[in-house]
Design a protein around this nucleic acid. Sequence first.
DNA 1: ATATATTAACTGGTATACCGCATACCGAAT
DNA 2: ATTCGGTATGCGGTATACCAGTTAATATAT
Lengths: 218, 218
Amino acid sequence: MKKIGKFVSYTDQVYRELKSAIVSGDIQQGEFLQERSIAEQLGVSRTPVREAIKRLEFEDWVETLPWKGVVVKDIDRQDIIEVFQCRYANEGFVGERVASTITDENMAELKKIKSTMEELADESRQEFINEDRKFHMHLAQLTNNSLLIHFLDRLSDQMLRFGILAVKDKVRIKETLEEHQAIIDALETRSPEKTKEAIQRHIDNSQDVLLHQTKERE
Amino acid sequence: MKKIGKFVSYTDQVYRELKSAIVSGDIQQGEFLQERSIAEQLGVSRTPVREAIKRLEFEDWVETLPWKGVVVKDIDRQDIIEVFQCRYANEGFVGERVASTITDENMAELKKIKSTMEELADESRQEFINEDRKFHMHLAQLTNNSLLIHFLDRLSDQMLRFGILAVKDKVRIKETLEEHQAIIDALETRSPEKTKEAIQRHIDNSQDVLLHQTKERE
DNA sequence: ATATATTAACTGGTATACCGCATACCGAAT
DNA sequence: ATTCGGTATGCGGTATACCAGTTAATATAT
């Protein structure tokens, strides 16, 4: 008798619940997470709630003030800069590393994702963003570096929080598609240098748009 | 009224205790961590031990097998490669970023660390490694990117685990000093490109030595 | 003797009660 | 009116008891 699926603990469920609530904005920044009320609300005890919160804390979603409470961290320009700098460094490396060894199959997969994004451009912003994430993470997978992949995955999570803004207007969507095409073109040449530059240019542009749209606040 | 010191929980203490035990080899890879016995041994309850273990799990030191146990992950060639690739990408970025803006004070600090390392070269391997970490982390600090800094700090922790091997022989110590000097020289020119290359060359060399010394096993 | 069912002794997972710090409130002293 | 100090309350931190799979030794049937 084999176990079919993995065991999913309450902790996991609560974690996913809370993270998606933060990402979607249902729980706003500055808001306090209260172990007891969340536990009651979800029908579990404080323990799994507590462990879920610890994970969120580790991933920098929330901050624990001892004896006072757990507060959802807010994001400012500095956070955006930090995430994009890390993406710049690591995704640039991914491109450099992957360009010379990428297979035709993987190229096809990237093109497929890109065409899906084109279809979704006028449809659903949310789905568009999901596919964008797939595009970048598909490249990352090719490094076979799980440490790097996990880190980029965390960054992608953070992106979701302010990612909604990044592709707010039609212009940026069009640019995003063009830049993805440029990455694909660079990959076709199998040139590590060109690929790295195409990716880093894409990331720099995204950052610029996002920072520009965040300028006035605070 | 200022708060004098930070509050340190049992969880923090247990975490540090366990991590240093793993790093030092007191707890070997493959060994099982048992919440109950550790709690008893340290004179605390299971709860803080459990939370400490969760943190270790998140940082990939251990793996939890539900209802079976928590086992200390072992490190293989792939782990070494992954850590060094991440260092290559991120520390390279640090060099690129910092070269053009580094102050004379910070240059002086780097030189000071380097001369300390020279003094320690024949004394204490452990202290030598600590100073090496300081050198790299000092550069990282200059980016003011806390996300990046935390990631590199985690990588440094991992380095400790197999770092003992990296500077096992006198030859490698001498090379390390030379390569640090090369990084300092590159910084003097304020050239992002040269600095990045000097750092990445240093990291590549360290990786080569380490992989070479790990070749036979498994 | 061997194969199989049982069960006892682990483990981590969860629920819950209690502790101690931080804060807000309220009354007494100034 | 202001300030100081006690106190009630709410929070995370910790301890502990119990639950639920897993495993392996053991009893039992063949």
